[in-house]
Design a protein around this nucleic acid. Structure first.
Length: 782
DNA sequence: ACCCTCGCATTTTTT
DNA sequence: ATGCGAGGGT
């Protein structure tokens, strides 16, 4: 609810966030005076900072100063003498969040005092596993496989089992294993029922084979970083006890995103001192599809009896209308902890719902709106387009290129996932860890050096029987007659090179060694010789890779960083509009937010509904909530009556979420294209005998669902009103017009057809000039 | 070893 | 539509 609309001059967030410098001096708390870092917190924030002991759940809605509370809490723990930095465990999900927290904590504590146990779940998992690797059957220098390696390994296992990879795709097994690991299941605990989901009941056995293979490779995948850490604690009470007493205080960020393993792992640790503080927002739980379990946060008070729950509901980001709309929408979800954002800020702009004719018009009007905002002094950096699916991005990109509007796409393919970077890293891995078979396989004939599958098969076979890695197998085989002369020589050359590179790595700075490896191996030359347009970019990436190694003490540290971080910070110059998915937008904020594609099927996404029923719908709704709450000043929602999906045009109904927005807080607009259609086009259809159905979005949706006959559970009456007459949805009549045909358009008058593209006609109108119009608006000239 | 064609899927993504 | 991967042909 909007509690007050008076403008507050002392918005603590607005003042304290951008200007943290100079770093507040850490004063001793508890001398009667309030420690300076506590000043400027609102009462709830302050309660969340000061409730140090016992379990605490901080329900932090969007834009309530969550990060500030977390970092201040850490500062308070240290300043009050409750814990020293190395006695605090602070976990986040993303590297970005960890980095941000580390930076802000260091402003309080002074940069010399690091927080060794502040990091992502995975990085902390690695750290703990390296300390006790042997207890889970690994050597301390184990390698961390990325998804690519993981998949290739699974492929090999399926091949060894003679499974048809058409029928049983490796990807499917990979995601099953991933899911099992997310839920804390090792192969022995996978139920027969679940196991039957793959290769006729062999799922669990294949999982076991995969785990065994990882162990022989001395490797772990991402899931293991959590699962093995859990196993370590479960099977070694002494190790667990040591960590329980080490971590006097535990903080968890984004608790709503935790999965089962993370939860179990945390719970074990928290059972020690009991000082666990989880911060999260059940309304922003949008990662259920990758194992996050909202129930963890919903169950917190049960899991941790006597837990204190603190709600942060004072929002410092958005105007009152935006918050009211977001609140009205999310209120349609059941199973929430319940929390309503409010603000002292003015009501501000009403979120606008805009109906457009099709996705091209959508891109056009969004582009125009951005240019308009730009003219009014809005920086492009403060503008974002948040889409449900990345396939929606293309149309915006095309339009923005055409109009010369600078943009950036957030969350495309990541740096360390590029093929050339993976290849280069594979070389470095082979240098650092000669037994890294997956790395060796990747580069042993890359660039082409005449070593083919046949030789590799021999190495595999020999290595397997001798129980040694591929590199060692190669070393042994070049001494014998097993291999034909030519491959033997080629292999010998390669091994000699690696010996040389390893020596170099010890003697010269590692980035120079890396450069040497990439040059001498012919890898750089391979790309230089390639004359495809993207080769230059790849060479740049390789340069960037080598350059980025400079910041690390040695090759091993660099490789560890890479496997955990998987991305580099990119510095980009100039103002740009951001285009990203709603998922990628979580945690960000913009003055002006565009939310296109609010149509049934796309958003809420049909697949989410089909796969997960009401839970899926509610997660979609949370996604909508996340999108709306990104906006500081203005949110614009679009729905198109027609959209090209998978190559063909489909008509679509406005999203049910639009009906759920509180009508008093939104504004409704429609563009000419949509208006003409819904407006006086209808009577023409009637006259023309098309039997034009005049429908509300709601009735149309009802019909769509009736036809579909699904049971996804959307019987609930729409809470809002519908926007009558705004978007009539109809399939385009089938008949066509010949090129050159004389036609009459309700708005543009007479003209001649130039060309047709499906239901869209390009027409030279006698008076209005050339226009692209929908066929359904024209009739043959009388 | 390379190229071409065919078939297939196509929500969201971190570590 | 489009792009990616596998498989087959040259």
């Amino acid at each position: 609810m909007i509690r007050s609309v008076a403008q507050s001059p002392d918005n603590p967030e607005a003042e304290a966030f951008p200007s943290f410098e100079p770093a507040p001096r850490v004063a001793r708390a508890g001398h009667g005076r309030v420690a300076p870092y506590l000043e400027g917190l609102n009462p709830e924030q302050r309660a969340a900072v000061e409730a140090l002991d016992g379990p605490v759940l901080v329900l932090a809605g969007a834009g309530v100063g969550k990060t500030r509370v977390l970092t201040t809490r850490i500062a308070h723990l240290i300043a009050s003498g409750r814990a020293r930095p190395h006695e605090i465990l602070a976990v986040t999900f993303t590297n970005k969040a960890a980095r941000e927290m580390r930076e802000r904590v260091s402003l309080f504590t002074g940069s010399h005092q690091g927080m060794p146990w502040l990091g992502t779940f995975h990085s902390i998992g690695v750290k703990i596993l390296r300390m006790h690797a042997e207890l889970v059957g690994l050597r301390p220098n184990f390698t961390i496989l990325d998804t690519d390696d993981q998949l290739r390994l699974i492929k090999q296992i399926l091949q060894a089992e003679n499974l048809d990879d058409k029928r049983w795709p490796p990807r499917a097994l990979a995601s099953l294993i991933d899911g099992w690991k997310n839920r804390g299941l090792d192969p022995a605990h996978v139920s027969a029922g679940e196991s039957s989901a793959f290769a006729g009941g062999r799922g669990a056995a294949l999982y076991a084979a995969y785990q065994a293979r990882l162990k022989t490779l001395n490797a772990v995948d991402f899931g293991d970083l959590l699962l093995e850490a859990l196993r370590l604690f479960r099977e070694n009470a002494d190790v667990l006890a040591a960590f329980q007493s080490r971590f006097r205080y535990i903080l968890v960020d984004e608790y709503q995103d935790t999965n089962a393993v993370q939860y179990l792992w945390l719970r074990l640790l928290a059972q020690g001192r009991g000082n666990v503080c989880c911060v999260g927002d059940d309304d922003q739980s949008i990662y259920g599809w990758r194992g996050a379990d909202v129930d963890n946060i919903l169950r917190f008070e049960k899991d941790f009896p006597g837990a204190r729950v603190i709600r942060l509901e004072r929002n410092y980001r958005s105007g009152g209308h935006i918050l009211a709309v977001a609140a009205g929408l999310i209120a349609h979800n059941q199973g929430r902890l319940g929390k309503t954002l409010f603000t002292d800020a003015p009501l501000g702009d009403r979120p606008t719902v805009i109906g457009v004719w099709d996705s091209q018009e959508e891109a056009r009007v969004v582009g125009d709106a951005i240019e308009d905002a730009q003219r009014h002094g809005v920086s492009l950096d403060d503008v974002a387009i948040l889409v449900r699916a990345s396939s929606q991005m293309r149309e915006f990109e095309e339009r923005f290129i055409a109009m010369g509007l600078p943009y950036k796409v957030i969350g495309g393919p990541r740096f360390y996932e590029r093929a050339e970077i993976r290849d280069a890293l594979a070389y470095l891995r082979c240098v650092a860890q000669p037994d890294d078979d997956l790395a060796f396989e990747r580069i042993y004939n890359q660039p082409k050096r005449g070593l083919g599958d046949a030789t590799l098969a021999i190495l595999h076979e020999f290595g397997r029987r001798a129980g040694v890695s591929l590199m060692r197998a190669a070393q042994m085989l070049i001494e014998t007659e097993e291999l034909k002369a030519r491959p033997r020589q080629l292999l010998r050359d390669l091994l000699l090179s690696f010996d040389r590179w390893r020596k170099a790595a010890e003697e010269i700075p590692h980035e120079e060694a890396a450069q040497l490896v990439l040059e001498e191996s012919g890898y750089i030359d391979m790309w230089k010789a390639e004359r495809t347009p993207d080769a230059a970019g790849r060479l740049d990436n390789l340069k960037e890779l080598v350059r980025s190694m400079g910041g690390f003490p040695d090759l091993g540290a660099f490789l560890e960083h890479v496997s955990l971080v998987m991305d580099v910070e990119s510095a980009d110059a100039g103002q740009r509009v951001s285009i990203m998915t709603l998922h990628a937008a979580k945690g960000l904020e913009f003055d002006l937010v565009f939310l296109p594609g609010w149509e049934e099927g796309l958003f809420p996404n049909q697949r989410a509904l089909d796969d997960n029923g009401r839970a899926g719908l509610e997660e979609e709704r949370r996604l909508a909530y996340v999108g709306l709450t990104r906006a500081r000043r203005t949110a614009k929602i679009y729905h198109a009556a027609n959209r090209r999906m998978r190559g063909l045009w489909q008509s679509s109904a406005p999203s049910r979420f639009i009906d759920e927005l509180p009508p008093d807080h939104i504004a409704v607009e429609e563009t000419e294209g949509a208006a003409a259609f819904g407006g006086y086009g209808v009577s023409r259809f009637d006259a023309a005998g098309f039997g034009g159905r005049y429908e509300t979005p709601g009735s149309r949706r009802a019909e769509v669902f009736r036809q579909r006959g699904d049971g996804s559970g959307f019987g609930r009456a729409a809470a809002g009103r519908s926007f009558d007459g705004k978007a009539v949805v109809r399939a385009a009549p089938a008949s066509g017009f010949e090129e050159g045909a004389r036609v009459f358009h309700v708005k543009f008058g007479p003209g001649s057809v130039v060309s047709a593209d499906g239901p869209k006609l390009t027409i030279d109108f006698d008076k209005a000039g050339r226009k692209l119009v929908m066929e359904s608006f024209v009739t043959a000239e009388p």
